[in-house]
Amino acid sequence: MTDTPSALPPYAQALDMTIVDEINGVPVIGMPFTDRVQGRPGYLHGGAISGLLEIAAIAAVHRALQAKGSHSAIKQVNVTVDFMRGGLSQMTYAVGEVTRLGRTMANVEARAWQDDRDKPIAMGYMHYLIKAKREDAA
């Protein structure tokens, strides 16, 4: 059991995202293809792919902070998204990897794929500010 709230944020729920698996202890987020995530006909909207990457990245940072016993809040500073392949009308997955976790910031890479994890449809590169510890964190 972890003390992370298991519920994903409202934005993720609105797009039917769920935690479908774990890779090396980091949650894999899944997002089904629905009209709400469609861009040009038959393809995912880049913003919806970015949303999946974001939720996966945040989950990865929280997991990394927890592993250090930290309850710090985070704040996103920026993100670069590379769109590599069109997202087809099927289930999409994403997982984040914290490439560096320091005291003041975290570097995160998130990968989104459909059939083959080695053929990402998009990659996100994010920087998060680690805020001072929340005293109210249980």
């Binding site: 944020p9 409202p10 934005y11 880049g46 913003g47 949303g51 974001e54 945040i58 996103q76 998204v81």
Partner: peptide, 20 residues
Amino acid sequence: EDLVADPDTGILASAVIISL
């Protein structure tokens, strides 16, 4: 409300800005 990433603060998901 359903575009929010952090219910404590009401801050929109980053990806909402990306989509826009």
